[in-house]
Structures are given as C-alpha cells and as structure tokens.
C-alpha cells in the first residue's frame, strides 16, 4: 500500500542544511495500522507529509497505492490526495465559519459529487462517529473530542484507502483520546483502511499493529 525507498528530506537555506529524514525505508501493507513515534523534531510529521503528498522527498522513492508519486503533476497530486488519502490533524483544522456538516463535505467538494449526494455521504460519516445530531453546529460549539470526531468524519467521507493521522489525540484528554482511538481502530478493522498515525503517546501506539520509531530523521525501530 505504502512503500518508502531510501527516502531522505533535506531542508536547505543559504547557510544551513538540515536533514529531516535520512534514508528511510518503510513498507506499510494494506489494512495495517502503523504508528510512528519519536521526540519532537525527529521528522515524524515530515514523514507523514511525504506519505501524504504534501511534501516531496529530496531523495528516494515514494510509492503510494501502487503509484510512484514523484511522477505526478500538481493537479494529479491533488486528485490523488482527494481520492486515496484522508487526513486527521492534532489541531483538528475545522473551518470555523462552516457548520459541522459543511466541514465534513469539504473533500467531496473537489470531486464531481452532487450536493444531495455530498449531504448523504456526510451525514453517513457523521453517523459513524456518533455526531449526526451535531451536524448543524459550528465547530466552536463542540468539545475537543467532538471536533476530532468531526475531523475523522471528514477524513473518511470520501472513503479513502489510507488515513494519515498526525497526533490525533495530542490535544485531547485520555477519555476523549481513547474515544478517538477506538473509532480509528474500528475503521482499520472493519473498513480495512490503512492508517499511519504519528503519536507521542505510548499507550495509543501500543494499540496499533506496528510501531516505527524515528530519531534525528533516522528510523531506529
């Protein structure tokens, strides 16, 4: 499903060269729930961005869902992200001026999906995270856990093959964090969705199929 071959990422300025990822090799088969751990600044988010086609590696090959992503044009990359990937972020990234249902609809806006169908799929996604009754609320009317569940609904509304979660429980207390984790595990088990999750929380990481540890841009486990 996801294959990283000798992936490196180097940020260069006129005076400094910073290696964010150093020769990473990683295989994530379909249906796996992989967690990535490591101290701050070790390159976890950079790795997730590269898998999510939000960033390009300086070196190496990234193959996602059978496609070598470097060959994509900007437009094709956008389409690929839209159809194959779902994103969940630590700070939720809900648009405050849109209702919950409209936030969930967002990925479908960039596909040829009718308004009626968008609405149906979004309600279905909200139902699956237990928030259908909140669909006409605005994000600022929700708790942190609810916001993250809305973000999960948004990530799954387009039925992606891969979900990339960047510290999804990082801003939540343990109860809410567990709720969110339960939803992700359910998605992984029942929907066979491949999930790559960056986390700082050992307890959450232990619930996943496999753990990869990074340190200073290199894979140590």
């Amino acid at each position: 499903m996801i294959s990283l071959q000798n992936v490196s990422k180097v940020y260069r300025t006129k005076t400094i060269e910073t290696t964010a990822l150093n020769n990473i090799n990683l295989e994530v088969p379909k249906g796996e729930f992989l967690s990535i751990m490591g101290p701050s600044g070790c390159g976890k988010s950079t790795l997730l961005n590269i898998i999510g086609l939000l960033d390009e590696p300086s070196d190496g090959a990234v193959i996602v869902a059978g496609q070598t992503v470097q060959k994509y044009s900007s437009k094709a990359t956008s389409r690929f992200r839209n159809e194959k990937l779902g994103f969940i972020f630590q700070s939720f990234h809900l648009i405050p001026d849109l209702k919950v249902i409209d936030n969930v609809e967002l990925p479908l806006l960039y596909r040829n999906v009718s308004g009626k169908e968008r609405r149906r799929l979004s309600e279905e996604a909200l139902e699956s995270v237990g928030l259908k009754n909140r669909m006409n609320h605005f994000p600022n009317q929700l708790s942190g856990g609810q916001k993250q569940r809305v973000a999960i609904a948004r990530a799954i509304v387009g039925k992606p093959e891969i979900i990339l979660a960047d510290e999804p429980t990082g801003n939540l207390d343990s109860v809410m964090g567990n709720e969110v984790m339960d939803i992700l595990m359910k998605l992984n088990k029942e929907g066979q969705t491949t999930i790559v999750m960056v986390t700082h929380d050992e307890n959450m990481a232990r619930k996943t199929n496999r753990l990869v540890r990074l340190y200073d841009g290199s894979q140590i486990q």
Binding site: R79, L109, Y110
Partner: peptide
C-alpha cells in the same frame, strides 16, 4: 484553511 483544502484535494486553481 488553505493548507487544509489543499490537503483535502483542492488544486491550486481551485
């Protein structure tokens, strides 16, 4: 928001 939309599949043109 722009970053999010791009992540969710919006092209530059969108």
């Amino acid at each position: 928001e722009i970053g999010l939309r791009r992540a969710l599949g919006a092209s530059r043109q969108s």
